[in-house]
Design a protein around this nucleic acid. Structure first.
Lengths: 144, 144
DNA sequence: GTATCATTGAAATTGAAATTCAATAACGAT
DNA sequence: ATCGTTATTGAATTTCAATTTCAATGATAC
């Protein structure tokens, strides 16, 4: 079985839901895949507009929802910030360091933290669905 | 120096800001201190109303803001949930387990996690301001 | 007592996000 | 290709939490 690309994943997902791939949805997908990570809806909307000015905010929202459903995208809600979306396909789980001043986002992963989280959940008889760890601070550039 | 009680802390804080303690603010403080933890604004408003029906939503919001400023309260923004407030005075830092089904909130603290977080931040040249760790899952009652 | 300034409640506003709706476009069956 | 069905679209509206405005009121310092 070959590795499915993002387009096929979305196609399959919408098919399963009895929906369709449309030119608009393709544009939103392309724009999303073409961005750097952690894009917000507003910025993505602007990028989408560059490719097709007739596409609405609503369609961007709706398509992002579809992308999240099929795990091409992941919604990120940092404290006090607006919702962002990052690429999820072919990306391992990770947490984030966020600079409170410039907004810079650094991804990190730590097995030990994951492990302890699972342990804590187990001790409290919780079945883990997901977790959110966000460290807010000031990055080195902003400290100079 | 004797331990200040919550009332004195608020009093001092508003004084510093050139503001005043008012009957309404006292009622909101009392209601907040009298609740269980993790109260949302709506619920607190209802509790406040029981003591003084003339107090408005705006005053509850404004007073909660004051309580957060002087660290009597802490704002909690769990993913996809409305803002909640917990008692902060005389309470150690902790993280939360949240049941996705019944909303139950369990507090926990783990030194090792804190330690690793600091290490990760240091490695990335971030000066930590705060962090937010939230584990979402299903509690034991909801699994039965 | 008076001038000053914080406080209040009601209502309006904000801002992000989601939804409604009539018009349109795509699909499957024939 | 044509038809009927059903998803999709963009514009506008709505939702919802949260905040702010504003005129009236109340407290404080002098």
């Amino acid at each position: 079985m070959r590795i499915k690309d993002e387009y096929s994943i979305l196609k399959e997902h919408v098919k399963e839901k009895g929906l369709r791939i449309t030119p608009q949805r393709e544009v939103v997908l392309d724009a999303f895949l073409g961005t750097e990570r952690h894009v917000d809806v507003e910025s993505l909307y602007i990028l989408v507009k560059k490719r097709d000015a007739s596409i609405s905010f609503a369609t961007v929202y709706r398509t992002l929802k579809l992308l999240c459903e099929c795990e091409l995208a992941k919604e990120l809600k940092f404290e006090g910030k607006i919702t962002r979306y990052e690429h999820k396909y072919n990306h391992k789980h990770h947490d984030h360091l966020v600079c409170a001043q410039c907004g810079k986002i650094v991804e990190f992963h730590n097995d030990k933290i994951e492990e302890i989280q699972d342990k804590v959940a187990r001790e409290n008889n919780f079945k883990v669905l997901n977790h959110h760890l966000e460290i807010n601070g000031i990055c080195s550039s902003c400290r100079n």
